[in-house]
Computed example of a mutant assay.
Amino acid sequence: MARIPFSHARTLLLSGIGLVSLMAQANDDSLIQQRANAVVSLMSFTVVPDITASNLDIGSGTNEQAALTITQLGGGATMSEGFPIYLEGTLGYSRYDPQFVFTDGTETRTIPVKWNSLSATGGIGWDFGLHRDRWGGNLVLRPIANFTLGTVASDLRIGAAFISHKTGKNLDFLDGGTLNVYGLGGSLMLDYELFSKAQDIDAELRYSYQHLQSFTGTADSIAGQAEAENLGLYLRRRAPLFSWTLLDRPVRYVMEGARTEYLGAQRGLLGFNSLNSLGLGLELDSSKYKVFVTRTRLVARYMFSHNTNGYSIGLAMSF
C-alpha cells in the first residue's frame, strides 16, 4: 500500500474536499452540493486502470487532519488473435474521513464524517494490428468503450443530533446519505507486446476519459458529478533470473515503470499533477501444470512525485 504523508497531499484536503467549518447557515444545499461533487471526485481515481494510484493511503496522526484510502483491483486481456476483442474490468473503493468543524459562534465541535465509494468499471475494445517486428513483437491500437456503476455512502454516525439541535435542520446527505453514480467514457491505447524465451516486454500508452454523474440518491436536490481524465505510460520487462527454476519453469525477475499524468479536473486534486512508480519483483510460472493461474507476480513498487513519495506491494496473476 502506498502511504503518502498528509503534508504532501494538503491540496486535496483543503481545496478539493477540504476541512470545512460548518456554521449555522452551512446546512445550505449549496455546501452539501459541493461536498457531493467532491466525494464523487474521489471515485474518479478508481474507474481507470492505474498502477500508480491502485492503492493510495493519505493519512494523518492528529484529529484535525483527514484520512483518504483509495484501492483498485482489476485487469484486462485480448481474448485471441483470431478474434481480437479486448475485455477489462476494475473494482474500486475509496474511503474519506474528513473532520467537519461545527460552530455556532459560542461552541465548537469537531465531527467525523465517513464517506465511502464503491465502483465497478467494465471496458470493451478491439485490437487493430499496426506492426509486427522481426523479433515477434506486436504493436496494436486499441480503442475501448468504458462504463461504470458505483455508489457513494455518507455516514455521520456521531454528531447528527448535535448539528440538528444547533441548526434546527437535518443534514440528510451527511447522515446516512447515498448517491448512485454511473460513468460513460472511453480510452485509446497503444500497446506493444513481445513474448519470447529470452524476455517478455510490454509497453502501453493510454489516454482515458470518463464522465461520472449521480442518477439516484437519498436527497433529490443533491447530485454529484466529476471527470476522470489521465494519460498513462506503463513499461514492463520480464526475463529469467540466472538459471533458477521452480515448478519446472524458469524463475523470472520483473522490472516495471509507470507514470500517470492527471488531466482536467483531476489535475492537482491529490496535491500533485502526476504520479510515478518504479517496481522490481519476481514471477513464478505454473503453466506446466493444469491450474487456472499460469503466472504469479509479486512486485515491490516505489512511488513518487512532487513532494510526494510512498511504497506499495502488488500481487498479479495471469490466466
Rank of each mutant, 00 (worst) to 15 (best):
I144M: 14
A145G: 15
T148L: 12
T148W: 12
L149T: 09
L149N: 08
G150Q: 06
T151A: 14
V152E: 02
A153R: 14
D155I: 05
L156F: 03
G159T: 13
A160S: 14
F162A: 05
F162P: 02
F162I: 08
I163W: 01
I163Q: 03
H165V: 07
H165P: 03
K166G: 09
T167P: 01
G168Y: 00
G168L: 01
K169S: 13
N170K: 13
F173I: 04
L174K: 11
T178D: 10
L179R: 04
G183I: 06
L184N: 02
G186N: 05
G186T: 03
S187R: 04
L188S: 07
L188D: 05
M189Q: 11
L190Y: 02
D191Q: 07
F195C: 05
K197P: 09
Q199D: 10
D200I: 03
D202N: 14
E204Q: 15
L205V: 09
R206H: 12
Y207F: 15
Y207H: 11
Y207D: 09
H211G: 14
L212E: 03
Q213I: 02
T216C: 02
S221P: 00
A223L: 07
A223E: 12
G224T: 05
G224F: 03
Q225L: 06
Q225A: 11
E227W: 00
A228V: 02
A228T: 00
A228S: 08
E229L: 04
L231Q: 07
Y234A: 06
L235K: 02
R236H: 04
R238E: 08
A239Q: 09
W244I: 00
L247K: 02
L247M: 11
D248G: 04
R249S: 14
R249M: 10
P250R: 04
